[in-house]
């Protein structure tokens, strides 16, 4: 028992370091970029010309219909055969961004569509342009509805970054695997890694609650009990 605790304590710094240097930046960067991709894709689907909208639908179809692990392998191990060689971290970043972009585009499309048409008309009636109406009237209301589903994507992403271990990114899970290779203590190390993932997701859940509170200040909606 004491042996286990010492092992946990000894490995904690290198696991935390891997989380801090790889897992967290990879999560934050690919979510931020993925949101931009998702917003653009959603706007194209809703307002863009038909051929562009079809391209976006194709993109979402491919990304949602194939395993994330396969996508990462294609980018990192497959693309070099086509002459495109990427380092592990950028390859992972691209893979996760495309993945987040596809899933969030559907969320964003739905929440933009959920704002009543009358709100567009009210914005137009006081002289707003399309982009002013979008920025000042529609997106702020859509954002409120989007927080819970986008939080789902965000929290999934934190855990999905463990797949980057398979394309040699030395992130949290791979750091745990390496220590297991020398200590032969898989149970302890993988529990420890799982707890760190749990801690990271818990931070995000707490942020979600605060953000929901802030966006709900204007009232008129049901709120979660706790």
């Amino acid at each position: 028992m004491l042996h286990w605790l010492t092992l946990m304590a000894d490995s904690l710094p290198s696991l935390l370091w891997a989380a801090l240097v790889f897992t967290v930046p990879l999560t934050l960067a690919s979510f931020a970029l993925g949101l931009i991709v998702g917003l653009v894709a959603a706007v194209v689907r809703l307002f863009g010309p038909a051929p562009l909208a079809a391209i976006v639908r194709f993109y979402v179809w491919i990304i949602r219909g194939t395993p994330l692990l396969v996508q990462l392998f294609l980018i990192f191990y497959g693309l070099p055969s086509a002459g495109i060689v990427l380092d592990a971290f950028p390859a992972a970043l691209i893979g996760f961004t495309l993945n987040v972009g596809a899933y969030t585009s559907e969320i964003i499309r739905a929440v933009i569509g959920s704002v009543p048409k009358g709100q567009w008309e009210a914005a137009y009636s006081i002289g707003m342009s399309w982009s002013q109406a979008m920025r000042r009237t529609i997106l702020p209301q859509a954002a409120r509805v989007a927080v819970p589903p986008l939080s789902n994507s965000f929290i999934s992403l934190v855990k999905d970054t463990s797949l980057a271990a398979a394309i040699t990114v030395p992130e949290l899970f791979q750091a745990a695997q390496r220590i297991v290779a020398t200590t032969y203590e898989p149970l302890i190390l993988y529990v420890e890694a799982a707890l760190i993932y749990l801690a990271l997701s818990s931070v995000l859940s707490a942020l979600q609650v605060r953000l929901e509170k802030r966006l709900n200040q204007y009232g008129g909606f049901l709120e979660a009990k706790s």
């Binding site: 009543p116 009358g118 709100q119 008309e121 009210a122 914005a123 009636s125 009237t137 702020p140 209301q141 409120r144 204007y218 008129g220």
Partner: peptide
Amino acid sequence: FQNFQLFPHR
């Protein structure tokens, strides 16, 4: 408008 359509977030 019939249903007012005030901006609820303002």
